[in-house]
Amino acid sequence: MTQTSAPTIATRNIGAASRKKKRDAAIYYLMGLPAALLFSIFYFVPFIANLRYSLTRWDRITDPEFVGMKNFVNLLTNDDLFFKVLGNNLRFTFLVVLFQTVFSLFFAILLVRNTKFNILLRTLYFFPTILSSVSVGMIWLYIYDPNYGALNLFFNRVGLEAFALNWLGSETSALYAIAFTQVWFHTGQMIVIYIAGLQQIPQELYEAAEMDGATRWQQFKNVTWPMSIPTTVVVMAYTTIQSFRAFDLIFSMTQGGPNNASSIFAVMIYQTVFNELRIGYAAAQSIFFVLVLVLITLLQRKVLGSGKER
């Protein structure tokens, strides 16, 4: 009769546990495989292809010609439009992120309680979000019309003629007019996200603050704002990405004009591909587009993240 020693049993148990761990790991990898496949097909492969195209001159008619870093060099040294659009994009994003975040937080605080009236107002504020971007663009195109639009008719009616501008036709105001539309379009969506975040803040914190005699402003400063920073990070990151993708709104309102004053990266890339048939150059532009977007998002996370730590 053989006797199994304690270390052997332990070794077997370890072996079985290790096999189970390996089996589980295989299952986990297998479960992730469909998503990984989809990601590879729709994101990774196009990303690699884009990198490859950015090193070529290609018009989608003749064969691509390898040009090395020429597209990148040209973008940085001989393309005024690129820098103009970069400036437009940063201004547009800054304005949209700032006002959309402030407005949505403000309205979310007002509408955080689940009363029937508040729910009705939330629905109303959310309503523009369900419209398509092109519809929103068309609506505001009519509102901004310099000769027949509701906005200028209003200003003229109340004696504020100086405010009746050529909103979308002027290089100085077109970008700001579209930024306002973008804020109007998406604030309702952000209100909902903020309300969900605000409703997670424990009521006891407000009760304690009230006990300590804190004013409404002090309650906001010391309770609401610190506790809503995680939501703010989400709102700002989402709004940033959204403002970089505002292609359809801009395209339906001004197509980037006049004189590219309202053009952003997405519009410029579209025009480089479809109006100018310069695929390689557009690929290089899109790499900068992603780099700027990543940089801004990292910066936001750093600023808000360090704020949270304090």
Binding site: D145, P146, N147, N166, G169, S170
Partner: peptide, 14 residues
Amino acid sequence: PENPTGVTQNAAYT
């Protein structure tokens, strides 16, 4: 027209 660069096709037709 007034503000010519802001006049859309629809506005001109009107």
